[in-house]
Amino acid sequence: MAIVSIVVELKDQPGQLLRALEPISRYGGNILGILHQREKMTPLKIIPVEISIKIDENRVEDMINAIKENGVNVRSYNEIRLVATTSALLVGHIIHTDLSDTVRKIDKTGYAEVIDMHINMPQLNEPSTAMITISATGKEKLQDAMKLLNEVCRNKDILVIEPLNEEY
């Protein structure tokens, strides 16, 4: 699996985004995030839009070509190959302590991403549980990401239950 970040240039008109997204879904890409960079709008009303996608690394080229064929200008793209994945359980006041901040800290590393999250909230003010899955560009990077996760969670008093398997 790879995580690809594409910057496409879209006209500020209805239906534009769909032309970029359709090929992504056709090639089995999972969209992780879409960011309209409105502040970077050009005088010709072209908006750069950054799309993060998780996709089979062998289909990246075809997907990019398909987006171009749909008439969308791809300004740039970069690919992070994620070769190592692990899951961990977080137990505690995950939501109250700003879950998105926790995720952002991992994503900001540039070498690791939170690729999946499953949250169970029993009751308000009771500790909740999340199964978080993190991918990174290599085993060592994944260990670094887990260290970072532990650090962030320690400061927030969240228990991190790491897996026993060494397939880090």
Binding site: S87, L89, V91, G92, H118, N120, P122, E126, P127, S128, T129, A130, M131, L159, I161, P163, L164
Partner: peptide
Amino acid sequence: IEGITAITPEAFEVAMERDYTIRLI
């Protein structure tokens, strides 16, 4: 050292969905 006092039944529930359990190792 981290003990087991903070573990909740929901933690097991979430773990079990993926065929995992929790043990003090």
